[in-house]
Design a protein around this nucleic acid. Structure first.
Lengths: 205, 205, 205, 205
DNA sequence: CATGAATGAGCGTTCATTCAT
DNA sequence: CATGAATGAACGCTCATTCAT
């Protein structure tokens, strides 16, 4: 499913897939706790249940792990959003549902989102590019959903900015959690952001 | 002006101030390029123009450098916002000016903002706390400016979320620059976000 | 045989044993020349014939090396004394043989004895405790040998002090070697100390 | 009074004397706690009440401090013993008094004695030589006192070994304090060692 | 004489990576 | 394929020593 960006010396493809998923799972678990730099390859291997030597049969460098993690997380978010926006009838109601579902999904992926934000700098140029493309696609999907839901209400550029805003409001729920999650439940947060959005696009429900 | 959170073995206070500024300037320059973890203390010292020994006369650990950097950046942003919001007459016009000026300021501080987002995890608990407090204060200032500018138009909670949104839209200009800055100038971005905001608060200009 | 006080990340127990012995041998050789503090971990590794990285696979800190050395030396002395005092028939003749053999053993272990005296301060509290306990056991063994050899001649406390004295006279041969070994051979030294001892316990041979 | 083994760039002799005494006092205080190697020159200067720069006006290297400390401690012990043995009439009674007084003196100088034993290795060759000479002189004084007190009872060599033993029994009280001082008071220790000595030289009191 | 800021060699330790088994 | 012992470059940090003021 995922592109083979990372080289492995092991030939058996299904084994590579299996081991890589273990690596990704372990790495995410550790990166959540201590971040990429403070996590050692040994820890990743141990958490994954195999030796350091085996780990290096499936990756070439430590940065490869970060790559796998990024690809995995981004893939998740992308696929979730893709599924959401593939509803047949574009309508305001459906847009609201999409946003609601998206916020709740991000709420569950909080720590992963934080990883995305915090380790980009360590990403290799070409992976970074790929990641940014996936992000652009996310914006595009949401933008299209907006334009389909409320045609003639917003310009294309406004829809673009709105899509960006909505996505970032989701992230904001994660990286400003110390403030936001202390004061609001996810339901309240969604309600308020949705209300403000509807006002923005001048629509009453 | 800044609180003396970081210990120095050097007594002469003005010298400490001077050297610390050199450390902060060098560290920011390096953190921009390679992030905190990939930057070595030797590099910071060299960039600052003195020896590793001298560096350690003004800090105790490498994390102290991150602390100084955070305090400095946050201080800057905070003071800018404080200056902006201390205008006498609260009015919608002034609010728009504040936001405009804030966006332009953030635009100039782009790289610093990215540092803020990317290295929080490495911050010591008590500095992190302080940083979060400063952020909360920023929200508060903007929230008050909003409520003063358009009384009776938004609830306190809405003003709170709006303030958060505005600040994060500023940050978004930085960490989504690959998309946003490719498509819009800062003037366009400000214009659009401002337009959307005014729609949100149901006001025509 | 020795308790596993020091942690190693290497699993293979016989390899650990082997490497540890190399570490101990190298460390003793170097500590003899320059003491613990002036010896670097790199020197220890080099002398042992492996890299610094490998050294740290078998110890956790430099102090662990000192620990290993202490445990090893003390173990040696203890075991020698234990073997000596396990003769079946307690008699004055056997006591004299024990002391003779002990002095000669210490003569061969000179430099090690000096290490014992000079680096105790750098020992971790719990190892220091253990070391002192081993020393107390040495005194006890000799004390018992004395009391068994010449019952009714000395009180228990006198036997205790005598045992201490004898052991320290052995050490004295090492740390006062500049004077003693210049004037006496080990044979002469043993002869004289033994003569004085016999006078002390009022026995003619 | 003391030989000028250590060079000072300061000319004023009485000032040098004064400052050096402060250095010695501070150094001993610190060496007692943490040993020579764990004590920094900065700490010595601070404890002495002047700056690091000033410290280096009175010494050339850190080892000079150890030298001064050794000379001072040894001088003390030597002078005490010299005073003790300068009694006019040599007699067994006086010998016992000398030994008693010597033990009590060593008891008061415990920590200093430990320094003597633990840092010799770090001493420069020529100071070590001087220190050993002072020690030999101590043995000689005691040996003479013994031979004067009990003429015809012991050979010269026996007197030599006895003198060594007595001095080392004093030290033993210090470096085996964990065992000895837990079981005996200094009075008891002196009484027992004296009793054993008298038996050794076959004399009843 | 006194100061203390500046220096940098050198320390203990870590950890990504390799490769023989 | 899997292992894990071995490697050594590189890190953060210390501290004896100097020298301009």
């Amino acid at each position: 499913m995922r592109a083979n960006t990372v080289f492995s010396s092991v030939k058996n493809a299904t084994l590579v897939e299996k081991r890589r998923n273990e690596i990704i799972r372990s790495a995410i678990a550790l990166f959540k706790q201590k971040g990429f730099h403070r996590t050692t390859t040994r820890e990743i291997a141990k958490e994954a249940g195999f030796s350091i030597g085996t780990l290096y049969e499936y990756i070439r460098t430590k940065e490869d792990v970060l790559m796998l993690v990024y690809e995995s997380i981004n893939d998740h978010v992308f696929r979730h959003l893709a599924t959401l926006t593939e509803v047949q009838e574009p309508s305001l109601e459906n847009l609201i549902t999409i946003i609601d579902s998206y916020y709740r999904f991000i709420d569950r992926m909080q720590e992963e989102v934080l990883i995305l934000y915090q380790e980009v700098k360590s990403l290799e140029a070409n992976v970074k590019k790929e990641v940014l493309q996936t992000e652009r696609n996310q914006v595009l999907m949401l933008k299209n959903a907006i334009m389909a839901a409320i045609p003639n209400k917003v310009s294309e550029e406004e829809a673009d900015i709105l899509a960006n805003n909505i996505l970032v409001h989701g992230h904001m729920w994660c990286f400003r959690r110390w403030t936001l999650q202390k004061n609001y439940t996810i339901d309240e947060y969604i309600a308020m952001q949705t209300k403000l959005l509807l006002q923005t696009i001048q629509v009453d429900i």
